[in-house]
Design a protein around this nucleic acid. Structure first.
Lengths: 141, 141
DNA sequence: GCATATTTTTAGAACAATTCTAATTATCAC
DNA sequence: GTGATAATTAGAATTGTTCTAAAAATATGC
């Protein structure tokens, strides 16, 4: 079975085409940079690395390319709670559901045992003092 | 059993004192604003609401108060992945572990059934198309 | 109570991450 | 090739947040 858990430079062209987008050098280099060193770089860091190969690329293009790759689902944006920080006084263990339609955020109570189960996936040597679970999607109400 | 899942205006004074901090009007009003309308307001929104009662308060103070309340654990900051967005090409279902010491982020593979269990806590009417799980803490390596 | 030290607040400047804008360049369909 | 569309560019603008230095409030030792 081929590994489909990561896109390849070859499949990128096809994936872009499937979305009616072009495989430009900038997009390819940005993607290759992400494949080469998987340390979850920021846009700025990607910019710095891409410059080595495309010295004239602009930061705006890096943002554009990253956004495109995320749209095509060949790259994930890790911190996708982008906007401003929000505050809540609910101290129960709970997750957050972000309604993409209304922009509102709802608390979702979490059974403590589920939190334990989630923490249990951590390999030895990892000690988490906080777990944040965020859903995104639509809610009826 | 008293409900300890939310701090009260009365307990706030004590909680602050326990941390060697003062219960100032600004801190109290900021906290009351969060209790009054639990819609996960941003700092700007809190600022606007607090102004109704303390017209001369500054935005910096609101940030300071919120930070203080979070430190005392009477308030949670929802989007605590604050820094820049990070990107990864790993398309497997995975969580992220953020090492607070080194600042590095590691992928934690998630068994698909765990993701299902997590999604199962959503009440009827909630439809999530994405779940983000982030750990924070220390990792040995 | 008073002087002094400490904490907190304030206004505004500074900063960092991101998005927007308008002009230029590249690519596609014909 | 020509015209339409897509993508890139540089730089300005915007947003959310933090910093700074001074002023105000509060606590503490006397």
């Amino acid at each position: 079975m081929p590994d489909t858990s990561t896109a390849t430079p070859a499949s990128l062209t096809q994936t872009l085409a499937d979305s009616g987008l072009r495989a430009t050098p900038q997009r390819e280099v940005v993607f290759n940079v992400l494949l080469k060193k998987r340390d979850h770089p920021t846009a700025d860091e990607v910019f710095a690395r891409v410059k080595a190969e495309l010295p004239t690329i602009s930061l705006a293009t890096v943002y554009n390319c990253l956004e495109t790759l995320v749209q095509c689902r060949v790259v994930r944006a890790v911190n996708f709670e982008r906007g401003p920080t929000r505050y809540c006084p609910n101290l129960r263990p709970h997750a957050h559901f972000h309604d993409e339609q209304s922009g509102s955020t709802h608390d979702i109570d979490l059974p403590p045992e589920l939190l334990e189960q989630v923490k249990a996936v951590l390999p030895p040597g990892y000690d988490a003092n906080a777990v944040e679970i965020t859903f995104r999607g639509r809610s009826a109400s």
